[in-house]
Design a protein around this nucleic acid. Structure first.
Lengths: 249, 249
DNA sequence: GGAATAGTGTCTTTTAGACATTATCAA
DNA sequence: TTGATAATGTCTAAAAGACACTATTCC
């Protein structure tokens, strides 16, 4: 049963006399916080804006929501356009930003999405962007001047905090990794995203004692010094109890 | 430094030739999931719609975002209009719903907010509503037919799940209560929202051993059989470690 | 006194933190 | 051999689950 099926005759009469253009103009966009872990750093995919406003500034990728698209579809489309990924990445709605002055063009309400992707893909510059790159978030935060266009500093900060929190009580850290991976690879993801060192032995015990977190492949990998068992992503999304995050350094 | 201060000369030239009405019309609304605990039941504030579409159906309170309002301001305004509360209630952004067919009038993107309020206030019917009531969520969920207009069944379900999760790792349960309250009052909030019985002695120990969760008033209350010590809300938002939610019945 | 609720104390189990030890492979 | 990493085992500390017991008040 769809929403349309539930309309009454009165509703249809009302709609025939309804003028959508009577409302002040608002645009709806999606902006993407696409995070990955590479070279021991948490990185975010940024584009350099090729059109005004803020031409030349770095910004989160995003775009307008099509007239017949759902928000999720628009976000998936943008993710595919920027990274080529259509599957294997986690994506969830992050929050919505609608300050009247956040975009000088007009009232723009932006629905932000958070995506966690493995390191592999090389970003592709879209139509509005002259350049697209993964940049370490540590290089962006903390400065007095804004690093990104619009209110994207804040969106990025919210996305990072969401990602950090989600690693505590879900198995989503595995979506940062290509399969198969080792327990140490997974631990390095946590250490990178949280910015704290973890106790290797206790981390291993916790991961392996949580059913559905990772699945053993039975294979071993000779990697640098020594060897390591290889795993795949498990099916369980929820960690119970949570993987405790140590207090900040 | 505001966003406007960062505009370049090129940006201003571009904006002068920009036509906001070139975009397909979209409306932005806020919808409120206002939860409270009364008579041992988790209740949500609903309005009966006094205008089409879906006239006569129950729905979440909400309304259009004003041209110069932030989203948070619009949500606070709606909360005050419906409940009279301007302070003392917790409110946070829940999620955004933008399915193209979710409202038959036009493309409506709704930013949903979650509010947790104490039992006291009597709801006020607004301009679009013929009636406003707190209704137990247990009476609404689970039926085959939708209980609410638009996609409000799903928004409500998301709000309830958010509230349940938040009680685990924050002290927000106290915002359901009028001050002062007893530990048993607080436990009954948890039992009502989670729908499971909790061990009274262990619950008490956890609450009192968490600094900043509740603050003793030093007074005692003779209530029914026996007596109970009275407490106020503490300052701490985060529970560390979390208050564990027992597996569902 | 009996019932119901609030509060205290304690034992057990689970889980996390810390640390020691062994195994494997590369330089 | 040495150094680095992976894996295993064990001890301790913290926290949750379970239960026994006392205190107070209403009936």
């Amino acid at each position: 049963m769809t929403v349309d099926d539930r309309l009454t005759g009165e509703d249809r009469d009302f709609l025939a006399s309804y003028d959508p253009h009577a409302f002040p103009p608002v645009a709806v966009t999606v902006d993407l916080v696409i995070l990955t872990v590479r070279d021991g750093q948490l990185c975010v995919l940024l584009i350099r804006r090729g059109a005004p406003p803020h031409r030349g500034s770095w910004a989160l990728p995003g775009g307008f929501v099509g007239p017949r698209e759902t928000l999720d579809e628009a976000a998936r489309r943008e993710l595919a356009e920027e990274t080529g990924l259509v599957t294997g990445a986690h994506m969830e709605q992050l929050a919505t930003y609608g300050d009247p002055a956040r975009d000088p063009r007009m009232r723009v309400v932006s629905v932000a999405y958070l995506a966690l992707v493995p390191d592999l893909p090389t970003p592709v510059a879209g139509t509005d962007a002259s350049e697209a790159r993964y940049r370490p978030v540590a290089d962006l935060a903390g400065g007095a001047a804004p690093a990104l266009a619009f209110d994207h500093d804040r969106i990025l900060a919210d996305g990072i905090e969401r990602a950090r929190a989600k690693l505590e009580y879900t198995g989503l850290a595995t979506t940062f990794l290509d399969e198969p991976f080792t327990i140490s690879d997974l631990r390095r993801v946590y250490e990178t995203v949280w910015g704290v060192p973890l106790h290797a032995a206790n981390f291993r015990r916790k991961v392996l004692s949580t059913p559905g977190f990772v699945e053993p492949t039975g294979e071993k990998l000779a990697t640098g010094r020594g060897w390591a068992e290889l795993y795949r992503r498990g099916a369980t999304a929820h960690l119970h109890p949570a993987l405790p995050r140590p207090p900040a350094t």
